[in-house]
Design a protein around this nucleic acid. Structure first.
Lengths: 326, 326
DNA sequence: GTTCCGCATGAATCGATAG
DNA sequence: ACTATCGATTCATGCGGAA
C-alpha cells in the first residue's frame, strides 16, 4: 500500500480476463499485471467502485482498510485463517496474544457489515501455548464476537491427519484446529447435500435383513426422545457428514507452505455457497481459499497485507486455471 | 444421603476385601454391603477419617459435601464427566446452561484443594446448542477456572466415532467432545511413554520417503523445533500419540451404557498416574473411571449423587474384578 | 477357534403446535 | 409473547450367538 496525502492506492491483482499472450513460456506462469486503483478520493471519501472491480482479484493491503470500499451485505462466505498470535511474525508483525482480540475485532466489524444476512463466516484458528498454558484469546474472541452481534453457530473440528509425531515435556503434538462458524442470523444458507459422503461399509450387512424393531420407530431407552426407523435407510448410498473433518495438511510447493489444504475451504464453500456466489478471504496468505473458490466456480476476493503473498496467490490461481483448461 | 440433625451419613460401597462367600450364585453378582459412615460429628465438624476409608469405594452423595472429608493435596488425578447442562435431567438436576458455571465452581474449588500440586484434572465436557447457537458456558467455565488458579494446560479432543445420528437444517451431528486438561502447577506428572503407540500407517506412508526438502521445510516451520529431528523417527516401532483421541462410545446390548468408553479414562490414567496412585471421579455415573483405575491397579474413589448409579458402579467393578481373577 | 451376522444402543436439535 | 410438548430426522459400533 502506498499513501499519498488523502489518496490511498492498493495494488490489485486481477486474475480473470487475462490476455492469453501474457503467459511466460519459460516459467509457465502469467505475468502479473498491476492495476493501480484509487480506493479513496482526494477528499478522503470512499471511491464508489463497481463491485466488478473486486471480483476474482487479490488485493494487497490491510483488509480493515480495503473492505471499507466493499458494499454492505455483499459477501456470501468469509473463510479465513488469520495470523495466529505471535506466529508468522516475519510477515504479519506478530500480534501479541494479549492484544489479539483488540487487534481482531475492528476487522470483525467490517466482516459483519459486508456479509450477507444469510451468509457465513468460518474462522480457522487455534490458540497457541503461552507459558505452558493454552492462551485464552480464542475463547475471548468468541465472547467478543457474540457481543458484536455474531452468532456462534457451530464449532467444526479439523483433525490434521498427517502431522508428524512430536512431544514436549508437558504435551503431545497438537493435531486439531478449530473452525468457528459464525452467522449474522439464526437462519442462513446451507447446502447439506453438496457434502454428502458414501455410506460406510457397515450398511451393507446391517441393512440386508431388518429385525421387527428395525421396521418401526424405536425410541431411545434413555428418554431423550430420540427414536429412529432403520428401514428408512434401505437403499441409501450417501450419508450426511458430521462436524469433524479429517484432512491432511498440505504443502503447496517449495516456496511456501499453505496453512490449510484446499479441501478445507472447498468443503465449506460447497456447504455454504452456490456457484457464482462471492467469497472473501481477508487474510489470504498463499491464496488457498481463492484456489478452492476458483475450482468450484465461485467468485472470490483475497486480501493480504504482504505483497509477496499476493503475487504468489495470483500466480497460483492463474496456473491452476491454466491446468484446468488443459 | 440421610440427614439427622448435624449428623450426615453417606452410603459407602466398599469394593476391596469383600468376602468371597457374599457372591450371589443366582445373579452372579456380589451382594452390596452398605457401610454407614458418619462424615460429620454431632457438632457439625468434619469427622477425621483415615484416608483408607475412601480407598476403592463408591460413595453416594454430593461430591461438594463428601469431598470436605478428603484431605488437601491427596488426589493424583481427577477424571470426570459432569452432567452437561440440561442433559441427564432424569438422574441429575438438569442444570440450566446460564447457571452452569455458578453450579460448577464451588465443586471446582474442592477439586483444587484435594488435588496434589503435581496432579491433573481432566474434564470431559461439551456445550449444548441453545436457540441455534453453541452456548458459551464451557468457555466461560475455562475462564472461571483460570481465575480460581487452575492452569488451562491443554485441550484434548475426543473424536466420537459412532455418536448418535442426526442432521438438522443448520448443523450436522456433533462428533467430538472436549477433554480439558487443568493443572495446579506448570510442572506436573506426565508419563508419556505409557501411551506410546505402535507405528502405523503414518510412518509407512510418510517416514519412508523422507526427502531432503521434507527435512528442510520442516526445519523452517514456525520454529517449533522438532522438525529438525524428524529423521530420528525412522526405524522406531513406537511413536508418541497426539492430542486427538479416536474412540467409539461403548454400547452394551442389554444393560446400561456408559457415556464414555473405558479406554478414555484408561488413556489419561496411564498418562498422568502410576500404579497405586489415587484417582477421583466426583461425577461417577456408571463408574467407568473406576473400572479403568481398577484394571490399571490404581486406587479410586467414585462419588455420585444418584444411589442407583452407585450400586451399578460397585457391581460393575466387582464383576470386573471377578472376571479378571478368572 | 474364527468369522459372520443379527441386533441393541446412544450427552441431539429443530420446527410446528399447543398451552 | 413466552414456554412446553411432540414428531421428525439420522449412523456406526460392540456384543453375543450362529455358522
Amino acid at each position: 500500500m502506498t499513501e499519498n496525502n488523502n489518496e490511498k492506492t492498493y495494488t490489485i491483482y486481477s486474475i480473470a480476463n487475462l490476455p492469453r499472450e501474457s503467459i511466460n513460456d519459460s516459467t509457465g506462469l502469467y505475468q502479473i499485471p498491476h492495476l493501480q486503483m484509487p480506493l479513496f478520493t482526494d477528499q478522503g471519501e470512499i471511491n464508489t467502485l463497481i463491485p466488478d472491480e473486486f471480483v476474482n482479484t487479490i488485493i494487497n493491503g490491510d483488509c480493515e482498510q480495503v473492505l471499507k470500499a466493499i458494499p454492505d451485505n455483499s459477501i456470501d462466505l468469509i473463510f479465513t485463517s488469520p495470523p495466529y498470535a505471535d506466529q508468522r511474525s516475519a510477515t504479519y508483525g506478530g500480534i501479541k496474544p494479549d492484544q489479539y482480540v483488540a487487534w481482531f475485532m475492528p476487522k470483525a466489524k467490517e466482516f459483519y457489515r459486508i456479509l450477507k444476512p444469510e451468509g457465513s463466516f468460518v474462522l480457522n484458528i487455534k490458540e497457541r501455548v503461552v507459558d505452558g498454558e493454552r492462551h485464552t484469546y480464542v475463547i475471548e474472541l468468541i465472547l467478543a464476537m457474540r457481543k458484536m452481534g455474531w452468532r456462534w453457530t457451530e464449532e467444526y473440528m479439523w483433525h490434521k491427519k498427517n502431522s508428524y509425531p512430536g512431544k514436549w515435556p508437558n504435551r503431545f503434538r497438537d493435531n486439531w484446529e478449530r473452525l468457528l462458524h459464525f452467522t449474522k442470523e439464526k437462519h442462513f444458507k446451507m447446502y447439506q447435500e453438496e457434502v454428502m459422503l458414501p455410506v460406510g461399509d457397515w450398511a451393507q450387512s446391517r441393512l440386508k435383513k431388518l429385525s421387527e424393531t428395525d421396521k418401526k420407530r424405536d425410541n431411545s431407552k434413555v428418554g431423550s426422545g430420540f427414536g429412529k426407523n432403520i428401514s428408512n435407510w434401505v437403499g441409501r448410498d450417501m450419508v450426511y457428514p458430521n462436524n469433524v473433518l479429517h484432512m491432511a495438511t498440505e504443502c503447496y510447493n517449495q516456496q511456501h507452505s499453505a496453512v490449510f489444504p484446499v479441501a478445507l475451504p472447498e468443503w465449506f464453500i460447497k456447504l455454504f455457497t452456490q456457484p457464482g456466489d462471492m467469497i472473501l478471504d481477508p487474510f489470504n496468505g498463499s491464496g488457498t481459499t481463492c484456489v478452492a473458490a476458483s475450482r468450484l466456480e465461485r467468485n472470490y476476493l483475497g486480501i493480504d497485507i504482504n505483497q509477496e503473498y499476493c503475487e504468489l496467490a495470483a500466480n497460483r490461481i492463474r496456473s491452476e486455471m491454466l491446468t484446468r483448461k488443459g
